[in-house]
């Protein structure tokens, strides 16, 4: 077995482990979809108050816009909030120690921990879209919607570095859930998830251009809803690819630095 295959197999083992653990709590496993339904209903009724403002011609148009925001927020929550929470649980349970001394090692162990949240986010996104189409009648551009999958994948890879850094935060400071909450809330604000970034004041609007969430949202809306895109779609794809290529190695390097530091301070298994 080559090293690459062995690492891939170990990552798959972590994914299966996380699935089994999640599946062992059946109610929690399914209740997230119930919660999705409530969010969709909430935004549906909020959207009834929106018409002819902020560039939306109808309530339905805003609702469809917000649904994509909900989907991206789900991906963000899975990729940013779940891995730090899972690592903290591993620290408390003592299983992190086994990962660190195993041939797999801590870096690959952390990357493997991203797999299940990633998959769960993808399933949630599809379920949300289906619920929104079935129960609330949003018009899905079925011809281009399948293209949203690779774009969502690229987007998730571009978001991944933030999750890796938050995991490094847990190793360094033992608690990073507040950090994840701040980041998710800030992104909801400047990423154009629930309202167009054009509504932001000029002095803060630039922030929507220096992170991967806005191009991901624009692209997904374009592919799933068939809406106009403010820029060339390929430019957004290039932006997402660029963010992934630059941020991913940087975040892994940051994680390695933190791991070396906590190995030196002896706090690597503390919680």
């Amino acid at each position: 077995m080559s090293a690459a295959v062995a690492y891939a197999d170990s990552a798959l083992a972590i994914l299966q482990r996380d699935f089994r653990l999640a599946w062992s709590y059946r109610f929690r496993f399914f209740s997230r979809y119930l919660s999705t339904l409530f969010s969709l209903a909430l935004f549906y009724y909020v959207s009834r108050m929106v018409s002819g403002g902020a560039g939306f011609e109808s309530s339905d148009e805003y609702y469809a816009f917000a649904v994509i925001g909900i989907i991206i927020l789900q991906v963000l929550t899975s990729v940013l909030a779940m891995p730090p929470m899972n690592l903290r649980q591993e620290l408390v349970m003592g299983s992190w120690e086994r990962t660190v001394v195993s041939p797999l090692g801590p870096v690959a162990g952390v990357l493997g921990m991203m797999a299940f949240p990633f998959l769960q986010a993808a399933v949630s996104a599809v379920v949300t879209l289906v619920f929104a189409a079935l129960f609330f009648g949003i018009d899905v551009a079925w011809a281009t919607a399948p293209l949203a999958l690779p774009v969502a994948l690229l987007g998730a890879v571009a978001f991944l570095p933030f999750g890796i850094l938050l995991v490094a935060g847990v190793l360094a400071f033992k608690q990073a859930s507040m950090g994840a909450s701040y980041i998710i809330t800030a992104i909801s604000l400047v990423g154009g998830l629930y309202f167009p970034v054009a509504l932001l004041p000029d002095w803060i609007e630039w922030t929507s251009q220096v992170q991967p969430f806005t191009p991901a949202a624009d692209l997904l809306r374009h592919l799933i809803l068939g809406t106009d895109i403010p820029s060339d779609p390929w430019l957004d794809v290039a932006k997402l690819t660029g963010f992934a290529l630059v941020l991913l190695p940087l975040s892994v390097a940051g994680l390695r630095l933190v791991l070396e530091r906590v190995r030196r301070t002896g706090t690597i298994v503390e919680y």
């Binding site: 062995a6 083992a13 709590y25 195993s102 797999l104």
Partner: peptide, 17 residues
């Protein structure tokens, strides 16, 4: 805790590569 002994062992063999 919520995995069986077999599942714990299987997982351990895989991270031990």
């Amino acid at each position: 805790a919520r995995l069986t002994v077999t599942e714990n062992l299987q997982y351990a063999t895989r991270i031990a590569m």
